[in-house]
């Protein structure tokens, strides 16, 4: 066994441990969501009707596609097609930006309706709706931060693939970035129904 395979094995265990900690980090918010939903079912119902289901679905499709792109980037790299791999990483980053742009329009629309934390309109609504929107901003916000971090990480990977410091023989960094990106996708897979669909 050579040193690079050793490092690969270690990195893989490390990144999976990290993914577990991320699941638990979001888990704290899922805990709050479930307890507050339990106590305020009607207000959560009213809150989720306010959200734009079309944009939510669009963003789900975008993120799923980006997950496919990063998987294909690793797949192409493994087959020695570095150029193609770089294109797929670029496509992933493009999807991530697309997601953020949609999110930006969603948030701005809510802000225009006075549905933001501590706003008079939101505070005049039933308390459960305030909690719904508070959690909506916290959870999609934290997820958004992860998307932004993902853009940064994937950009570094793009440069490294192009420069040839990530190679078919030494793909660890790209593989691990891909795992992180899939995690971001999985979290959204749960956020989407919790906020947009369950009414």
């Amino acid at each position: 066994m050579n040193a690079s395979e050793d490092a690969h094995a270690a990195g893989r265990l490390g990144i999976w441990l990290f993914i577990s900690t991320e699941i638990i980090l979001f888990g704290g918010l899922f805990l709050l969501y479930s307890m507050y939903r339990l106590k305020n079912p009607a207000d959560f119902h009213a809150g989720s009707l306010e959200l734009n289901r079309v944009l939510g679905t669009l963003n789900t499709v975008i993120l799923i596609t980006s997950s496919l792109c990063v998987a294909l980037a690793i797949d192409s790299l493994g087959k020695g097609r570095t150029r193609k791999s770089a294109w797929f990483v670029a496509a992933t980053i493009a999807c991530a930006f697309g997601f953020l742009i949609v999110k930006f329009f969603e948030w701005t629309a809510k802000f225009h309706h006075g549905l933001y934390p501590n706003a008079k309109v939101l505070l005049s609504l039933p308390k459960g709706e305030n909690l719904f929107f508070g959690l909506y901003y916290l959870m999609t916000g934290l997820h958004g931060v992860h998307v932004i971090v993902g853009i940064g990480v994937l950009s570094v990977m793009l440069v490294r693939v192009l420069r040839g410091t990530i190679t078919p023989q030494n793909p660890t960094y790209l593989v691990n970035s891909g795992l992180y990106w899939h995690l971001v996708d999985i979290i959204w897979i749960f956020l989407f129904p919790l906020f947009y669909l369950i009414t």
């Binding site: 395979e5 094995a9 270690a10 499709v61 496919l68 294909l72 690793i74 493994g78 793909p171 593989v175």
Partner: peptide, 29 residues
């Protein structure tokens, strides 16, 4: 930890199966 193989080697799913999984995810959405 021995017998490690870097993940990029084609011992996982094929390219076609990745696309199939993507299709399934879209249908489920």
């Amino acid at each position: 930890a021995s017998r490690e193989m870097p993940d990029a080697r084609p011992h996982g799913p094929t390219t076609r199966s990745y696309v199939a999984v993507w299709g399934a995810l879209i249908v489920l959405t």
